[in-house]
């Protein structure tokens, strides 16, 4: 069985590395992108089961990225993971179809549980 494919979008190398380590350890296939613009290019050429994205990024931030996903890839499930969310961003992300809005201070087990839970939800969109 093919491993589930996750696109990890964050401008911070340290954060990309650690999240990749955690999720690869769970058997997921991970592709990374450092901003929304590069992530959109990846979405055009590959198929993903989930996108895990930061909000605050250069060139194209998370909200703009979510808008593009909603318009061009509505079938893709998205989790937002951010250092500081704020209610506005939360509302906007939810409005744009994000499944979850997580803090980067999350514990690993909780993160794994949420990612697995969302990926296992079939045809929910």
């Amino acid at each position: 069985m093919e491993p589930k494919h996750i696109l990890l979008v964050d401008d911070d190398t340290g954060m990309r590395d650690v999240l990749r380590d955690i999720l690869e350890d769970e058997g997921f296939k991970i592709t990374t992108a450092e901003n929304g613009k590069i992530a959109l290019q990846q979405l055009e050429t590959q198929t993903f089961d989930l996108v895990l994205t930061d909000l605050k990024m250069p060139q194209m931030d998370g909200i703009e990225f979510l808008e593009c996903i909603e318009q061009n890839h509505p079938e893709v499930k998205v989790i937002v993971i951010t250092a500081y969310g704020g209610k506005n961003n939360y509302d906007q992300a939810k409005y744009l179809g994000a499944f979850e809005f997580l803090s980067k201070s999350i514990r690993i087990e909780e993160l794994k549980k949420i990612v697995k839970g969302i990926i296992s939800r079939e045809n929910e969109i």
Partner: peptide, 24 residues
Amino acid sequence: TREWAHEIRNRAAIISLNAEISMT
């Protein structure tokens, strides 16, 4: 201050996640 809070929170999250990996 907002930018720096964001930056420090990011680093703290990475440290915390890496520490948790080591622990596990």
